[in-house]
């Protein structure tokens, strides 16, 4: 049974082209391959499909416009018109996560978002960016965000630390949610796919059916988690821009 793979083996990082720049390991890995593919696909979707600038959109152009309007509306509803200038970032974030997640659904591919370091890096950028925006727009008044209004003052000794803690926990929860969903889904798929082989022609149908159903669910989760990550980013942005609780 030397060929028995661990369900976690699919998350192994492989250096395809070892590169080192100034002592930093910048190797081109299997993760990087799928990041590049995701970027290429998003670029293709958003530019190639719009090349005709058709008045009546075709299928691909409809998808591109749908994506644009989906994120634009999300930003408008959650942040208002002040969020307009962060639209390219939010849109990039959504598309990058969505395509990373979806690419991972192709067998033998790799899911860049199944690594905590990737999701945490994105969540951290969002966290730092939102905090910087908050201080840039409101100066030290931004600290008032941690002080709930209309609360008897003795309670503040309890509530302010909770508010601060929950604020700093944001990047952790944001990144863990995406990472855990991706990892759990893929691991489960792998485990049940293993059962198919182990149970053979007679008994393998049940886990196979389960794997098929799970694949559908995972595609839904790929969309849902990209959406959740993006809408939470919008909500954090709203807190920073408008400061009300």
């Amino acid at each position: 049974m030397a060929e028995q793979h661990s369900p976690l083996e699919q998350f192994q990082i492989r250096r395809l082209v070892p590169i080192e720049i100034g002592g930093v390991d910048a190797s081109f890995t299997n993760s990087a391959v799928f990041m590049v593919i995701a970027v290429a696909l998003v670029t293709l979707l958003m530019t190639y499909s719009m090349r005709g600038r058709a008045m009546v959109p075709g299928r691909l152009q409809s998808i591109a416009e749908l994506g644009y309007e989906f994120i634009a509306n999300m930003l408008q509803e959650n942040v208002g018109s002040a969020g307009r200038k962060y639209f390219p970032f939010v849109f990039t974030l959504f598309m990058f996560i969505l395509f990373s997640n979806l690419l991972g659904m192709i067998p033998y591919s790799f899911t860049p978002t199944s690594h905590i370091v990737v999701t945490f890096a994105m969540a951290f950028v969002v966290f730092v960016g939102v905090t910087v925006i908050g201080f840039a727009r409101h100066g030290l008044h931004f600290l008032g965000y941690f002080v709930p209004k209309d609360v008897p003052w003795p309670l503040l000794f309890l509530l302010v630390p909770i508010e601060v803690l929950s604020y700093f926990i944001r990047p952790v929860s944001l990144s863990l949610r995406l990472f855990a969903n991706m990892m759990a889904g893929h691991t489960m798929l792998k485990v049940f796919a293993g059962f198919v082989v182990a149970l053979g022609v007679l008994g393998g149908w049940a886990p196979l059916a389960f794997v098929v159903a799970l694949t559908g669910l995972e595609i839904g989760i790929a969309f849902l988690q990209a959406y959740v990550f993006t809408i939470l980013t919008c909500l954090y942005l709203n807190d920073a821009v408008h400061l009300h609780h």
Binding site: I13, R15, I19, I21, V24, D25, A26, S27, F28, T29, S31, A32, M35, V36, A38, V39, F96, P112, H115, V117, V118, A121, M122
Partner: peptide, 12 residues
Amino acid sequence: DFPPQLVWLAIT
């Protein structure tokens, strides 16, 4: 494995 992922995440 963190540095190569972060580098390529930033680039892409």
